[in-house]
Design a protein around this nucleic acid. Structure first.
Length: 290
DNA sequence: ACGCAGGTTCGAT
DNA sequence: ATCGAACCTGCG
């Protein structure tokens, strides 16, 4: 992956390495980490989020058109965070493409304005699969609680100053921990699903699933018990770069009924349908769309 | 108390 | 194919 972003500063602050770069247009960390795609990044202060992905800690601050990444360096940025944050994608082009396919329809237009700055992260595949299995028929605070308990119990420790973070545990560790362990985390009926996923995940053709058609990748994921259409499309969108995966949850159902009961529909978008879905979801759930 | 929360499975039509 | 109930749990 070639780094298309230009690092403008770097150094050490408070014992943490950091790098700075210009914030690109259509990039807003508060929307990125608060649009429901990610359960493990939390606010550090009003302009900063922090968390762990791919076994690495990251703190990211956005202000005055500058992005500062703490706990990392240029090499790791090029290898990991640039792609994780989708800084290699042209969201001007994506937004125009969506708007044009939707023929300037007014709801999608408002949704893009409202959700502008959201980027689809490229998260770790196993973590995303496991997290969205846990998310089913569950609420966000409890989802986060279960995931952090899972990481604290089985994940590798990551020290940052005097604080400790945890990597997401591998499928093998979860298989070894067993069903009773998963039940002790209050995962309930999802425990057997997590175990089935942990058993099957290592033999999936993970790289190929990024480039194959959505429907083929979807079919493979759905062989896992507990993975239905919603979980599968979330996982494919948030960690397999399947930008046409279009998760339909309760909020999107509302959107479809309210604005698209007849005529043009975002379900028929050919390119970047999943990104359109994120805008509509954010608009309906967090925007003031009345 | 009892319905519900970012769904899926299972069994009955 | 389609439909509804049941599912772990904790919160209001």
């Amino acid at each position: 992956m070639t780094n298309i972003m230009k690092i403008i500063a770097g150094g050490t602050e408070g014992g943490l390495e950091y790098i700075s770069l210009p914030a690109p247009p259509h990039f807003d960390i508060s929307k990125i980490f608060d649009c429901g795609q990610c359960f493990r990044f939390e606010p550090f202060d009003s302009r900063t989020y922090e968390g762990v992905a791919y076994g690495r800690y990251l703190r990211i601050r956005q202000d005055d058109g500058i992005l500062t990444l703490f706990g990392t360096n240029e090499r790791e940025f090029d290898e990991l965070w640039c792609r994780f944050l989708s800084l290699d994608e042209d969201y001007s082009k994506i937004n125009e493409s969506i708007l044009s396919e939707m023929q300037d329809e007014k709801t999608i237009k408002s949704a893009i304005e409202c959700g502008d700055g959201i980027r689809i992260l490229r998260q770790e595949k196993w973590e995303t699969l496991c997290s969205f299995i846990i998310s089913q028929n569950n609420n966000i605070p409890r989802i986060k609680k279960i995931i952090s308990a899972l990481c604290e119990s089985l994940g590798d420790e990551i020290s940052v100053g005097d604080r400790t973070f945890y990597a997401f545990p591998s499928p093998e560790r979860i298989v070894n921990a067993g069903i009773d362990f998963l039940l002790s985390l209050k995962t309930g009926f999802r425990a057997k699903y997590i175990l089935d996923a942990a058993t099957k995940f290592p033999s999936l053709p993970l790289d190929d699933m990024e480039t194959m058609d959505f429907s083929q990748a979807d079919e493979l994921l759905r062989t896992i018990s507990g993975v239905g259409p919603k979980v599968s499309s979330c996982v494919l969108l948030f960690s397999f770069s399947q930008v046409n995966a279009f998760p339909v949850d309760v909020w999107i159902k509302r959107v479809l009924e309210k604005y698209y009961s007849s005529g043009i529909s975002p379900l028929n978008i050919k390119n970047y349908g999943g990104i359109a879905q994120q805008y509509l979801f954010y608009y309906e759930r967090y925007g003031f769309s009345k």
